[in-house]
Design a binder for these strands. Structure first.
Ligand SMILES: [Mn+2]
Ligand SMILES: [Mn+2]
Ligand SMILES: [Zn+2]
Ligand SMILES: [Zn+2]
Lengths: 139, 139
DNA sequence: AACTTAATGCATCATTGTTGCATTATCATT
DNA sequence: AATGATAATGCAACAATGATGCATTAAGTT
């Protein structure tokens, strides 16, 4: 996924393909795991803090990125999969945080987690898992 | 659960039973559902903001209350069940947020939600559900 | 009643979220 | 390629919450 890919993606979502947006998306893509807000900010010092805020908002709005909330209220951002678009975010995946390396990853599971709460209408289920990741377990 | 109950509870956890702490716990107890931080602050204007912050921290530390994080980074606080103590928080319950009345409730489910992530060590699973609560569905 | 120590209040700073407004850059149209 | 419409940006400004240091006060013990 290079700059041109994101440029086209932005256009397809009716967003202008500005340098900032492309830089941000390339950065997030290279980061591999979900990127903590603080790291994004450190890496994007060229753009104003408010612009970064609004950029993240609009990319989220258009289904290009999504936010993974963590305990202690830290926000992580990750690029959405192909199933997300302007109208719908589809995130039935799990967010896993390694307490050793602090990495947050999006985990697509084969098994479907079933939650029922009798009497209540369920619209959205988000699952946060904490533990030690494969890499850290090995060390 | 009256003031005396909380006074004893605080003592049993090696915390001084101050007026602020007892007031806070009685308040949270009467609130029934998990209480949003903003509401707690509004109700506890008699105590300094920093003291409230430190009070919530120490009550959490000692297993008397717990924090329910929500998307958009709002924090809700609820009194722990009998299973929590100074050394362990046991929260394998679900936090359900009604998008209609904004209420967050702790839901103890009979069914055990099973999550497996091959290769990773799982220490903690927290499940956040959004939807419409029983009361709001009826209206 | 006196003492010890935790708890509190106040000052202060940091981070993140959020809005308004003037300026600039992107993109479509000529 | 120049022009114009409009989205995107930068800057100022304010709010909410988290967090620490230090002097004062209150709780619990003797
Ligand atoms: Mn994700
Ligand atoms: Mn709970
Ligand atoms: Zn790890
Ligand atoms: Zn409701």
């Amino acid at each position: 996924m290079d700059a041109q890919y994101f440029k086209d993606l932005l256009h397809s979502r009716k967003l202008k393909a500005t340098g900032h947006r492309i830089n941000l998306l390339v950065l997030m893509d290279q980061y591999k795991s979900a990127m903590p807000y603080s790291s994004i900010q450190e890496a994007m010092t060229s753009m104003d803090r408010v612009t970064l805020y609004r950029t993240l908002e609009s990319l989220k709005e258009k289904g290009i990125i999504h936010k993974a909330f963590q305990e202690n209220n830290e926000s992580y951002y990750a690029i959405c999969g192909a199933e997300c678009d302007t109208h719908d975010h589809h995130h039935d995946h799990i967010h896993f945080k390694c307490t050793s390396c602090e990495t947050v990853t999006c985990q697509t599971t084969t098994q479907k987690v079933q939650v029922t709460l009798p009497g209540n209408e369920i619209h959205k289920v988000s699952i946060h898992v904490e533990g030690v990741c494969q890499t850290c377990v090995a060390n």
